[in-house]
Design a protein around this nucleic acid. Sequence first.
DNA 1: TTGCTCCTCACGTCACGTGAGGTGGC
DNA 2: TTGCTCCTCACGTCACGTGAGGTGGC
Lengths: 138, 138
Amino acid sequence: MENWNAPGLLLAADDSADSAFGQRKNEPVYTIGELAKKFKVTHRTLRFYESVGLLTPLRHGGRRLYGPNDADRLAAIVKVKKLGFTLSEARQMIANEASQQTLKLSHERCREQIAFLERKRAEIEAALAELRSIYTLR
Amino acid sequence: MENWNAPGLLLAADDSADSAFGQRKNEPVYTIGELAKKFKVTHRTLRFYESVGLLTPLRHGGRRLYGPNDADRLAAIVKVKKLGFTLSEARQMIANEASQQTLKLSHERCREQIAFLERKRAEIEAALAELRSIYTLR
DNA sequence: TTGCTCCTCACGTCACGTGAGGTGGC
DNA sequence: TTGCTCCTCACGTCACGTGAGGTGGC
């Protein structure tokens, strides 16, 4: 693929070529459709993230243009969401970070989330057991 | 507790004493607070279920009075929700049933739900693995 | 001219949560 | 009079989904 960092990997050090808009030059730029496809989200999701200030793409004409910074932020958001956190929490965890790959996740908050997901898993397993008994019973 | 059937158990046959309001006589009646406590739901939830036609309690003055039929229906709703179905699905599954304990759950729909919950469980387990690695890493 | 991708409203969805402001019986 | 439980609006929440109606470049 392109020279873009996969989610979870280190961010290439490039502190010299940031433009006035906070976008690095000579790096990939995506339309909304391209970025949506890359991260398996909808156009609507990207516009929604922008409306709540999580993404701030440039514009070319009326069209949105997403640079590497946007892609990095989106990668972080998607990752945090997969861990079961809300967008508000995502906002805090990726705020003011030089590298979005290093999430602001306290030990305490991490414990809580683990406990929360374990409860959810237990609920799902109870439901599965019940459904399987219903299924084989009939 | 009272002579009310626990969720999941058979419904006592009592087709002789239904009043004009579809409530059996000489059987427990609950206020909204009592029913809420019994099923560990909020007042708001019971009012919401009524607003969408899932429950139809009688009234005494302005106050709601829930009879055994309401309790049976609520037991069924709570059970269906625990299996991960929506309220719309709950409505279909308990519609026009002599006994709410026998859910209208087709083999096909049952399979689908099992598959759905297995996917969710896999997502949760992936998240847990990631969170645990983050937790021990720091 | 036709397709494709993009745009901006703006209401809808799901299952309630959360006040505000008030009533009625012990 | 004070508490307690109940009542009815009605807006808020979360994360988008889903049209409607229109634009712009190949």
